[in-house]
Each structure stands twice: as structure tokens, then as C-alpha cells.
Amino acid sequence: MAIRTTRTQVTFCSPFSLPELDGDQPAGTYEIETDEEAVEGNERTVYVRVATLLHIHSPGSTRTVTIDPAGLAAALERDAAIGTSVIGP
């Protein structure tokens, strides 16, 4: 089964939280990886999301956490209501 990985970045202008994380995370730019599995059909191939990963960099270490994409979207919406958040390539 083929897996494709898409890498993007999100920028939070304010501290944020996600259910999968302990406590608030500082404002900043975070890397997101989305893994999708290819499902081949008769006429076309579709991709189904199998994991969304958030990379948290801190001095001397990087932590990778599997997150719910809906929770990330909600956190970005909350951040946008407070200030301006950015989703980039």
C-alpha cells in the first residue's frame, strides 16, 4: 500500500492547546505532516488520511504528536478569532 506524506506549516499568533497535548503551547510556527494511504479503484486512486502529526520543537529536542485534524482546525479558528493565524506550504 502506497503512503504519501504532505508537509505544511501552521502559525499560531497566540498560545494554543489541543486535547492531545499537555497544557498550552507557545505561539509560533509548527510543522504538520499528513500521511495518506492510496486506495486504488477501477477508474481512479483516492487517498485516505491515516495520520496527522504535529512536530513540537524545543531547545535540544523535537516531539512528534499524533493529533486529530478537526482539533487542529478548531484551534486555528480560535486563534484567528483572537488574531491572525497562517497556514502555509
Rank of each mutant, 00 (worst) to 15 (best):
H55G: 00
T29M: 06
I32W: 03
N42C: 10
E40Q: 12
Y30Q: 09
N42T: 15
S58Y: 09
P19G: 02
P59W: 13
H55F: 15
A51E: 10
T34E: 13
A27F: 04
V48P: 01
T64R: 12
Y47T: 00
D22M: 09
D22H: 12
E20K: 03
D35W: 10
A51K: 08
P69G: 02
E40F: 11
L53S: 10
N42K: 15
A73P: 03
D22I: 11
S58G: 08
I32H: 05
V46G: 05
H57W: 09
N42I: 15
P69T: 01
E36D: 08
S58E: 13
G41P: 01
R49H: 03
V65E: 06
G23K: 05
V46P: 04
E36N: 06
E40G: 02
G41F: 06
L76Q: 02
D35V: 11
D24E: 14
T66C: 03
D68C: 08
G60Q: 05
G41S: 05
V50L: 06
I32T: 01
D22G: 09
Y30K: 07
T62M: 05
T64V: 15
S58F: 08
A73K: 10
S61E: 10
R44Y: 15
E43Q: 11
V48A: 10
I56W: 06
I67C: 02
Y47S: 00
L54W: 01
E40C: 06
D22T: 14
V50G: 07
G28S: 05
R44G: 10
P26A: 09
V48D: 07
P69N: 06
L21V: 06
P59Q: 14
E37V: 07
T62A: 07
E36V: 05
L54S: 00
T66I: 11
R63L: 08
V46Q: 09
T66Y: 09
A75H: 02
P69D: 06
A27C: 09
T66P: 04
T34L: 11
S61A: 12
L21N: 01
Y30G: 01
A38F: 04
R63H: 06
V50A: 07
